[in-house]
Design a protein around this nucleic acid. Structure first.
Length: 614
RNA sequence: GCGUUGAUGGUCUAGUGGCUAUGACUUGGGCCUUCCAAGCCCAAAACCCGGGUUCGAAUCCCGGUCGGCGCACCA
């Protein structure tokens, strides 16, 4: 069993992830988040909100998951999000039809499926694998299609990304932020892609959760106002150059921007922010890197793009976040299709005096003379130089016809005007998170199967791991010796999810030592107190205490509170730390505040009470 | 989508053309005055779906679904 299998098995058993529609045999590319999975995911999203909405000040919006056709025509998804496929009749191999045709003619990419089929038939293109004939080519679009309204309705698509919502709402957002760059908006929600062959569990889904942020920046100034916050933060960078050598480097954001490895401060800041977020929710920094897109894999309009990659046991380095400078591509595309200016007026620090040559055709006179051609005449006049306009009879050519205009029909002059700003189309910086992949990465990095005897010795526990007489100094020797002596004895392993208490789906377990009324009642009182404090608490009185500790280790509960007989006498309980398995005794009075501090304020476990049982 | 391989309680697993289909762990109820899954009693729970062959199919055959792997695909 590799780590992926172990994690997925645990996730299934403990209510983190389930295959969707299992009752009916399931369907590929869909997963349900169970009770603990939903909670964990929501907590990850909530921390994301703290980062982007509270700290960065980019407000959240919520747009429909169904989009109308125009949106995706503009975004390029209708035309570019599909591939023409073609299968061999004999061996069944599938090929990109346009790739097949490329060898015999240029511009194959511009042909549709029907035309491609025709070319393949005419040129007698056969399967490169086995020489068999091909079926007709067909378009496979990765967007789910749907119909809006009854009857023939209107073509709609399930959104393949959340980003378009922010672009479509650009004008409203711009007004909301009182037209001051930079500003941004975020969206967390479902997106849909009809993948041809989804695999690898939650890594490639047909319905998945994205958290995307679109930051609209001034294209002429990509310094970041808060750059110093992260300037000296070290990141693992796997740059274009590094990829040639196959090695990544640790480097501060400042150095990377100064050396031009990261295109500018704005991107650098956002890389660091992503690094901060991922490590906060429990991604192992040693298994996190930022990989720069190679020139040929980057969209043609992008200036620079970095992926945050998380290393996973089975899949290697997996892209989890994309951080790109998409320039003005998206706004211009929507501007063109919607025939609306999507831009921001930026005032200059000082108004500028601009001198220009202005031609003012007198439409009142041109109109009656030239009638329908008046407009074309006026346009032609505007293109003339001062010298040409100075003549008594001005000659122009409209639609191949020579026309003479008398000088009283047009005025012109050199004018100096005060210009206090200009209209700019903002550049978009886009951090785009794949929440499901991050969720799985957190699960895998939190997962650990450790030897109980070794663990108990390390923590100096009495009575743990079968109370074997092992001490820390000759630990390795002892373990080896034991291994040789009783080679067939199975080591007892403890499976523990080391979730950060910031994301753990259960924060505290309350456990009566035994299922007896005198212990159960005070336990339930503690349970109620902790819930009042808004902590995520679970109560468990089934089975032995050791079993319950293990159960909670498996779901990553950071602390367990146990009520024993001493509790009845001195009003104290034990608190057990998941990672070290150590315990302390602390008073019941104020236990809710103590745990709150440990979970949210980083209060050290050791400082919370008297050592107990070790 | 093609090829290949698999599918037995919640999990892991034994098994076979034929009576009530193993076992372990888990889970639930109860007992136990004391802390790290192995104390005791009791209980619940499975042959992926559809068709065919057969007196009889969970087992053999065909198709489907889901999972693993390889190829293709991953804007």
């Amino acid at each position: 069993m590799d780590k992926y299998e172990q994690v997925i098995e645990l996730a299934k058993r403990r209510g983190f992830l389930w295959n969707s529609f299992e009752l009916y045999g399931g369907s590929r590319g869909f997963y349900d988040y169970g009770p603990l999975g939903s909670t964990l995911k929501r907590r990850i999203e909530q921390i994301w909100r703290e980062f982007y909405i509270i700290q960065e000040g980019f407000m959240e919006i919520e747009c429909p998951t169904i989009g109308i056709e125009d949106v995706f025509v503009a975004s390029g998804h209708v035309g570019g999000f599909s591939d023409p496929l073609c299968e061999c009749k004999k061996c069944g191999e599938a090929f990109r039809a346009d790739h097949l045709v490329e060898n015999v003619m240029a511009a194959a990419g511009t042909l549709n499926a029907e035309q491609l089929t025709q070319v393949i038939k005419e040129k007698g293109i056969t399967c490169p694998e086995c020489g068999g004939e091909f079926n007709d080519a067909y378009e496979f679009n990765l967007m789910f299609k749907t119909t809006i309204g009854p009857g023939t309705g209107r073509q709609g698509y399930l959104r393949p990304e959340t980003a378009q919502g922010m672009f479509v709402d650009f004008q409203r957002l711009s007004r909301f932020y009182r037209e001051k760059l930079p500003f941004g908006a975020v969206q967390i929600g479902k997106s849909y892609r009809n993948e041809i062959a989804p695999r690898q569990g939650v890594i490639r889904l047909r319905e998945f959760t994205q958290a995307e942020c679109e930051i609209f920046t001034d294209p002429r100034n990509k310094t970041h106002p808060n750059f110093e916050r992260f300037a000296d933060r070290e990141l693992t960078l796997y740059s274009r150059e590094g990829q040639e050598k196959g090695e990544s480097v640790r480097m501060t954001v400042r150095e990377a921007v100064e050396k031009g490895i990261i295109a500018h401060e704005f991107l650098g800041y956002n890389l660091a922010l992503t690094n901060e977020f991922l490590t906060k929710i429990g991604v192992d920094p040693a298994r996190l890197r930022f990989r720069q897109h190679l020139k040929d894999e980057m969209a043609h309009y992008a200036i620079d793009c970095w992926d945050a990659e998380i290393e996973m046991d089975r899949f290697g380095w997996v892209e989890t976040v994309g951080i790109a400078d998409r320039t003005d591509y998206d706004l211009k595309a929507h501007s063109k299709v919607s025939k609306t200016e999507l831009a921001v007026y930026v005032e200059y620090p000082e108004p500028r005096m601009v001198t220009s040559f202005v031609v003012k055709p007198n439409m009142g006179k041109l109109g009656p003379v030239f009638k329908g051609k008046a407009k074309a005449v006026s346009e032609a006049l505007k293109a003339l130089s001062e010298e040409e306009l100075s003549r008594d009879e001005i000659k122009i050519s409209v639609d191949g016809e020579d026309i003479t205009v008398s000088s009283d029909m047009v005025d012109f002059a050199e004018e100096t005007v005060k210009v206090s700003g200009e209209t700019v189309v903002p550049h978009v910086i886009e951090p785009s998170y794949g929440i499901d992949r991050i969720f799985y990465g957190t699960m895998e990095h939190a997962f650990e199967a450790e030897d109980v005897a070794v663990k108990a010795a390390e923590s100096g526990l009495k009575g743990a791991g079968g109370a074997r007489d092992v001490n820390a100094e000759n630990l390795m020797g002892a373990v080896e010796a034991e291994g040789e002596a009783e080679g067939e004895t199975e080591e007892e392993t403890r499976i523990v999810m080391r979730f950060s208490s910031a994301v753990a789906p259960v924060q505290v377990a309350v456990l009566p030592l035994m299922t007896r009324k005198e212990l159960v009642d005070p336990s339930k009182e503690i349970l109620a107190k902790l819930r009042e404090k808004n902590l995520l608490v679970a109560y468990d009185d089934s089975g032995t205490i050791g079993r319950r500790y293990r159960r909670n280790d498996e779901i990553g509960t950071p602390y367990s509170v146990t009520v024993d007989y001493a509790s009845l006498e001195d009003k104290t309980v034990t608190i057990r730390d998941r990672d070290s398995m150590r315990q302390i005794r602390a008073p019941v009075e104020g236990i809710e505040d103590l745990l709150y501090e440990m979970i949210y304020r980083g209060r050290k476990f050791e400082s919370a009470g008297e050592p107990f049982n070790f």
